[in-house]
């Protein structure tokens, strides 16, 4: 005869174990893909050479190819994927709807429209573009919030307005790119679907710094985010300061998304897919922040490898994630139509 206490402890341990093992598997997977994207390429370098380069030793050929090309690219893939995944799942949890991802409701679109305008019309670069993208992301978030505010914000109204704004912003980006002089297709695709081509350490640094600040800030709100899916009133009754939490969390999530977009362009659907995939993996109820962030990193690493080497032509990472994400979006809209979907 088991006591209720034993039952409670056993249930909690089982859920925690499942979550921990999923997080472990995702970590191993991310590490393996990371290593693979350093080793693999037109020239395959043995892992020993790669390790030597990472430690700072001179290896003919590898020092340039791995150290200058592949390493920043792989590091950027990890951090951007992490940021997209975390930012996306935060929005989805907060608004209790998987469609509420920042890449669906126009926040990513705002960041990339602003970045393209900055590049094409004002010849901005580096940190200036990051700042512009972040300001634009925040502004779009505020505009959507303001437009959907009527006796509080209803999730579905916010999402529909966001989808409309996303479409508008995408056409702005396309228009601006068409005005760009000798813009090559690759650079254009970076701002339409996201790409890791031509990544350098100067892309990594701002995103890394932002992540070091914003990720702990978001993770510190795990408890509050765990109460929001129970409804605003229940969350408040459990001691969550609903509006204050929402403000902090939105700012942090938009910041992450905008910094990542400034670095890689809006890698399609990663923010949107990471949360639901993580939810399927860890099971109901568990906090999805860390699992979704890791799923994001795995998705970007994997999609970049596929895009570069699995097909005849090299495709930017966003094309591959786009192919994965679009059918899921359609599925979700169909399901939401029937039932009012949940994460």
């Amino acid at each position: 005869m088991t006591t209720t206490l034993e039952l409670v402890v056993a249930g909690r341990r089982r859920r925690a174990r499942r979550r921990a093992s999923i997080v472990g598997v995702l970590l191993v997977l991310a590490a393996a893909l990371f290593a693979a994207s350093l080793v693999y390429g037109r020239t395959v370098y043995p892992i020993g050479d790669v390790w030597a380069v990472i430690r700072g030793e001179e290896v003919p050929g590898a020092t340039f190819t791995v150290g200058r090309l592949r390493l920043p690219r792989a590091v950027l893939a990890v951090i951007a994927g992490f940021a997209f995944g975390l930012g996306g799942v935060t929005f989805q949890t907060m608004l209790r709807n998987p469609l509420a991802s920042p890449d669906i409701i126009g926040i990513t679109g705002g960041a990339s429209a602003a970045a393209t305008i900055g590049i094409v019309f004002f010849s901005l670069e580096g940190a200036q573009i990051s700042v512009l993208a972040i300001v634009a992301g925040l502004m779009v978030a505020m505009v959507i919030y303001a437009l959907s505010f009527k006796d509080g914000v209803a999730g579905i109204r916010l999402i529909l307005i966001g989808i409309g704004i996303a479409a508008m912003l995408e056409s702005v980006t396309t228009y601006v790119l068409s005005k760009a002089g000798q813009w090559d297709l690759q650079e254009a695709l970076r701002w339409l679907t996201g790409s890791l081509n031509g990544s350098s350490w100067s892309d990594v640094v701002p995103l890394l710094v932002a992540s070091l600040v914003l990720v702990p800030l978001l993770l510190s709100r795990t408890g509050a985010l765990g109460t929001l899916p129970l409804g605003d009133d229940t969350a408040a009754a459990l001691g969550t300061r609903v509006e204050a939490t929402r403000l902090v969390v939105v700012l942090a999530a938009v910041g992450l998304i905008a910094f990542a977009t400034a670095a890689t362009g809006p890698i399609a659907f990663v923010a949107f897919l990471a949360g639901p995939i993580a939810a399927r993996l860890v099971g109901p109820g568990a906090s999805l922040l860390v699992p979704a962030a890791l799923v994001g990193a795995v998705l970007v690493l994997l999609a970049d490898l596929v895009g570069q080497y699995a097909l005849d032509t090299r495709y930017p990472v966003g094309v591959v994630t786009g192919v994965l994400g679009a059918p899921y979006l359609v599925y979700l809209i169909v399901r939401t139509n029937r039932a009012g979907g949940n994460l």
Binding site: L7, V8, G11, R12, R15, R96, G226, T227, P229, L230, G231, D233, T234, A236, A237, L238, G283, P284, G285, N342, L343
Partner: peptide
């Protein structure tokens, strides 16, 4: 404590997990 009129249970959440909130 307050129990509102229509609280929302996240999809699939286990009883002891919800009570733990």
């Amino acid at each position: 404590g307050l129990l509102p009129q229509s609280p929302i249970a996240p999809e699939g959440i286990a009883v002891s997990d919800l009570v733990g909130r």
